[in-house]
Amino acid sequence: MKLLVVAKRVPDPEAKIRVKPDGNSIVTEQLKFVINPFDEIAVEEALRIKEKLGGEVVVLSVGPAEAAEQVRTALAMGADRGVLIKADGVCADPGIIARALAEVAKQEGFDVLLMGKQAVDTDYGQTCGMLAQILGVPYAAFACKVEVEGESKRLAVVREVDGGLETKLIGMPCIVTADLRLNEPRYASLPGIMKAKKKEIRQVSLEELGVGVTPKLRVESLEEPPKRQGGRKVGSVEELVRALHDEAKVI
């Protein structure tokens, strides 16, 4: 099995994000960066498929040079090698990212490509569907369970959709996006971290891939949302229920 998995560099989702006074970007000083949590679940799933069926796991990341840290983390978890697609200063246009990933996916070839259902920085959630269409392959988004039917080269994927669970059957090569409950990602072990230092990370640029850098979706400005005004603390359950009835009139 040839498995590709995407690991995007994003700010720590627990961190408080602030907009710079010029409204053009966020404050990145002191900000910790991690693998997009949904991508981390995708990495774990790729490793589990490899452990069961054998093969190779290649980590892809589109981002600045520093994204090599996130590729390295995925290698420490157990992935075999990495490809860093350098896109420094280019905004995170999902169309550009999808094209860049498509080029590398074509070079590498794959049976299954995994990624998170969305990145927690831009919250676009567009890359997977675009990538699948560019590559002309099927996909299953929001996966909570993946069963590989090795012989028939198919995947049965249970998807977390509104109102319940949907099962979709897709033929390889194909793309799967990970939702929260797919698995619990492992921590990198110390030997894993040591081994990762020797693993290869190939670097390519968008230019080398022949991917244009004119975005369709462009961020013009950023602002912090208006803060919701809090109310008051109540002293007892009785007071709470009375306030909801008499004051707020919601019960």
Binding site: I17, I26, D123, L217, R218, E220, S221, L222, P225
Partner: peptide
């Protein structure tokens, strides 16, 4: 071609321009 949408889990509201 201009919209407001949330980013960073709603910590930020972005004004974006869409071509296409």
């Amino acid at each position: 071609d201009r919209f407001k949408r949330p980013m960073f889990a709603g910590s930020v509201i972005a004004t974006v321009r869409l071509e296409g």
